[in-house]
Amino acid sequence: MSALEGPLTTITLCWRIERRDGVTIGLTAHDRDLEIGGLVYRAAPGMTPSAISRSAGLEADSMDVSGALTSSAIGEADLLAGRWDGARVVLFATDWTAPDAGVGLGEGVIGAVETRGGMLTAELRGAAARLERAVVEETSPDCRAMLGDRRCRVAMAPRRRFARVIEVAGAVLTLNAVEPVGNAYGGGLLRWFGGTNSGLEDAVAVSEGARVTLSVPPRFNGAGALIELIEGCDKTLATCAARFGNAVNFRGEPYLPGIDLLTRYPGA
């Protein structure tokens, strides 16, 4: 870059952060806002990355970003609530006098988020982190498919329902609608479409009548909010056959002997 050749450099760092729901923001370490590619990068002079390293091996590249997450565009409550989990982050350096020409420094998704010394810090995991995932499935007595995915093939359109939250008591929500069958939403998902939780998702532990119990209490007060409930499954063959009539697509091995077979007593 020609900006590096003079006695004084005009280089600054920029972040482009794309949330999973489509919200995109730009931040820059410069002391003034920059417009790059039609997106305004807001000045956030306090944001700093840790050392950026690249390797030719297959190890997962990562770095920490701090300061950027204290911007007014990314509030602490929203970050800790999970709104920015899995967001795509692109880090690049550019000449602030001609910002359209940048040099990429890193790209990945937001991983672990924690507080260090009163400051929010987020881990940025690179594309190589995907290589750490298991490439083959292990056998299991329970189904390994997700309800409604391409392997399960259960039609989910009639198993999604909207309701409104009447009361919140810890992790227990009272709704204005009753479930169609017993524990219909246990193991399912609740999506918030209104209130301060809007855009967030919560796992449902169990449901009974007009009440659903979440795995963890909602991040913010959800009374009066509109929600979408998606039915769940306990992953057992009995439920798959009796409730969904889908045993032919069951993705588990309920009758395969486990490692405890070698420790059983004769005749047990």
Rank of each mutant, 00 (worst) to 15 (best):
11 I>C: 08
116 R>I: 14
170 G>H: 07
92 F>V: 02
124 L>N: 07
33 D>C: 07
33 D>V: 04
7 P>G: 13
12 T>C: 09
263 T>L: 11
91 L>K: 03
248 V>E: 07
3 A>K: 08
201 E>Y: 02
162 F>T: 07
253 E>G: 00
36 I>Q: 03
58 L>D: 10
44 A>Q: 15
266 P>L: 06
6 G>Q: 10
131 L>I: 13
228 E>T: 01
191 R>G: 06
155 A>P: 01
6 G>C: 05
19 R>E: 09
143 C>N: 04
83 R>T: 07
215 S>G: 14
46 G>D: 11
178 V>I: 14
5 E>V: 04
49 P>S: 03
62 S>A: 12
104 G>P: 14
167 E>Y: 05
121 T>P: 00
24 T>A: 10
239 T>V: 09
42 R>Q: 15
217 P>W: 13
266 P>D: 10
254 P>L: 01
200 L>R: 12
54 R>Q: 12
58 L>A: 11
185 Y>C: 03
142 D>R: 11
222 G>Y: 04
210 A>D: 15
201 E>N: 11
58 L>C: 02
119 M>L: 15
30 H>I: 01
168 V>F: 03
134 A>V: 04
116 R>E: 12
164 R>K: 08
215 S>W: 03
268 A>S: 15
17 I>M: 12
249 N>W: 04
39 L>M: 07
79 L>E: 09
253 E>K: 10
168 V>I: 08
199 G>Q: 05
32 R>D: 05
86 G>T: 01
253 E>M: 11
214 L>A: 01
138 E>T: 14
251 R>P: 00
36 I>N: 07
172 V>I: 08
44 A>R: 06
14 C>P: 01
180 P>T: 05
158 P>W: 00
241 A>M: 02
32 R>C: 13
106 G>D: 00
153 R>C: 15
139 T>P: 14
254 P>K: 04
54 R>S: 14
7 P>C: 12
242 A>E: 15
135 V>I: 10
247 A>L: 10
246 N>F: 15
176 N>Y: 04
195 G>N: 06
63 M>E: 00
236 T>M: 08
30 H>Q: 14
142 D>Y: 13
20 R>A: 13
216 V>Y: 11
134 A>E: 05
40 V>S: 14
247 A>W: 01
178 V>L: 07
207 S>T: 03
167 E>T: 12
198 S>Q: 11
180 P>K: 11
246 N>S: 07
225 A>P: 13
41 Y>R: 03
97 T>I: 05
244 F>L: 09
213 T>L: 07
252 G>S: 08
5 E>K: 00
55 S>R: 07
210 A>T: 06
78 D>V: 01
237 L>Y: 05
91 L>D: 01
86 G>W: 04
247 A>P: 15
71 S>E: 06
216 V>A: 15
26 G>T: 04
42 R>S: 12
94 T>A: 15
161 R>I: 00
8 L>S: 09
16 R>S: 02
212 V>K: 12
123 E>M: 09
187 G>M: 04
196 T>K: 13
222 G>I: 02
62 S>I: 01
33 D>G: 03
251 R>H: 12
92 F>C: 02
261 L>K: 08
152 C>F: 04
179 E>P: 08
103 V>F: 08
15 W>F: 14
25 I>S: 04
5 E>L: 11
209 G>T: 06
207 S>M: 02
86 G>L: 09
197 N>G: 12
18 E>F: 00
95 D>A: 06
1 M>L: 08
188 G>R: 05
65 V>L: 15
109 V>F: 13
163 A>Q: 12
